[in-house]
Computed example of a mutant assay.
Amino acid sequence: MAKRKVLITRRWPESVEARLSASYDTTLNEDDRPMSADALGRAFFEYDAICPTVSDQLPAGIFPSETPRAKILGNYGVGFSHIDTEAARAAGIVVTNTPDVLSECTADLAITLMLMAARRASEGEREVRAGKWTGWRPTHMVGTKVSGAVFGVLGFGRIGRTAAKRAHHGFGMKVIYYDAFPVKPELAAETQAEARDSIEAVLREADVVSLHMPGGKENYHLIDAARLAMMKPTAILVNTARGEVVDAAALADALNRGTIAGAGLDVYEGEPVIPEPLYATNAVLLPHLGSATQATREAMGMMVADNLDAFFAGKEPPNRVA
Rank of each mutant, 00 (worst) to 15 (best):
M141F: 08
A90R: 11
P138G: 11
L73M: 12
T106W: 03
V142C: 13
A299S: 03
A149M: 02
L255H: 03
V54E: 01
M300V: 10
V238I: 14
D32W: 09
A88D: 01
A201K: 06
G143R: 04
V78M: 14
T162A: 13
D253N: 04
C51G: 08
T139R: 12
I62G: 05
E190A: 11
A195T: 08
R158T: 05
P138W: 09
R33I: 14
K5N: 12
H221I: 11
A295N: 14
V94R: 08
V128G: 12
M213P: 02
A248L: 11
E276T: 04
G264Y: 01
R126N: 04
A206C: 15
L109P: 06
A130Q: 07
M300L: 14
E186V: 03
F171R: 01
S103H: 04
P317A: 02
V150W: 00
A225G: 06
H140C: 13
L113I: 10
Y24A: 07
V321H: 03
A250T: 02
R69L: 15
E123N: 06
L109T: 09
P138L: 13
A90I: 08
P68Q: 13
G160Y: 08
F63Y: 15
A163I: 00
I8K: 02
P275I: 13
L73P: 00
